[in-house]
Design a protein around this nucleic acid. Sequence first.
DNA 1: CCTTGTGAATCTATTCACAGCG
DNA 2: CGCTGTGAATAGATTCACAAGG
Lengths: 240, 240
Amino acid sequence: MSGEQEQRSRRIPEATVVRLPVYERILNDQLRAGVTTISSEHLATLARVSAAKVRKDLSLLGSFGTRGTGYDTEFLISQIDRALGVDRDWPVAVVGIGNLGRALVNSEGFSSRGFRVAALFDIDPSVIGEEVGPSSVVVKHIDELPESLAGSNCPAIGVVATPAPAAQMVTDALVSVGIPSILNFAPRVLTVPTDVLLRYVDLSIELQVMSFYQRLRSEEVEGPLPQLRAVGLTPGAELG
Amino acid sequence: MSGEQEQRSRRIPEATVVRLPVYERILNDQLRAGVTTISSEHLATLARVSAAKVRKDLSLLGSFGTRGTGYDTEFLISQIDRALGVDRDWPVAVVGIGNLGRALVNSEGFSSRGFRVAALFDIDPSVIGEEVGPSSVVVKHIDELPESLAGSNCPAIGVVATPAPAAQMVTDALVSVGIPSILNFAPRVLTVPTDVLLRYVDLSIELQVMSFYQRLRSEEVEGPLPQLRAVGLTPGAELG
DNA sequence: CCTTGTGAATCTATTCACAGCG
DNA sequence: CGCTGTGAATAGATTCACAAGG
């Protein structure tokens, strides 16, 4: 065919998307250490992936490297940030202010990557009213969620950090106010409308995957250790 | 039962291993609800994956189904448990008893899936000596790790739940006592010997992946193609 | 020389489609 | 019949290998 159809932004595979934050973190470390230029080989060593993978990943964002030299660290960071959308403000609502919810809100990666705690909810009276996190957001009762997040107060991302039995109900509430993306930490498969983006993080699945490989290894003496990615999370974290 | 060594032919892809705990959890729910037989179609619906994927996954464990009927729920659970190795005792050491470490130790999936808290470590004097988790294990100082876990006390899995700057040091200590598998929650790429199994769980990566897809979606909406599509993730998401 | 960027080849995972069996 | 189990086809991701360019 004669003309190439105008491609909307180059399609980036999910496997690449998951590695981009890792590259970004390493590049920031390197920049702070005074490394202003970095080769795919060097970045690959630090991320424990192959250099070809780094080049392929980065080439999907555009041609930012200089042949014979490498990539400009600072510029590459800015391009990855732009691709990831972390140069924007991402208000996040967290439901379930137990240890997990607190860990998330207090984590380094949260505030430093453009994510902002917009609202916190729990059902436990002893937690409601408490100020949590670096930005000291007050925990509200889950019943206040609908009115609290309605309209222009609707955050971009909802985090479900409740026990499993409450997860679907909480998710329904988040969907009702119009939240377009949900990150679920509860060990349960959730149902959402097809236009809602849903991802999972499941601590116990990771432990069970480890026990699988360890059992395998102890049974197979010659065990060819599964060469797992050094980077990122479960590729199948999208069971929803 | 199972005496045969079928290493080559029965190799299970990682993508399948990650789904097995999900199937197992759903099957337990179903069994508790009185469902003693289940079809691949039904299980697939509950897990939000395709029926073909369920059948392919399960067939890798063996031929446990009955044609025309489906799978016996209880038997299937036992077979998945066996494959995952969760019918064994898995002593786990957790380093870093902040919110994340506590969330893990207290999580449902931990004790209920054969994982046992063998030891807890931190560096904060205000935490050391505290009894944490359902089994009330006393937190020890990180300096006691080497002697505490030496020899026959060496756990099967080490969990790194420290801040990023401490993660590599802690990992080195865990590797030194002979721990064969490490689950890292710190936002940092770790270096381990090739015979140590290493997996990552990174909360901030998941958030950044979400912001990537959400940004993509918001840009597509303003583009010339108003076509509604479940963005990015699930191949089976369009089942709706 | 260097290192990037990328088609081609390879490896891995998913889906299709139907034979085979209860 | 209905449903499993599985080769064959397809889609996706990684690695290879080298041309192109500073």
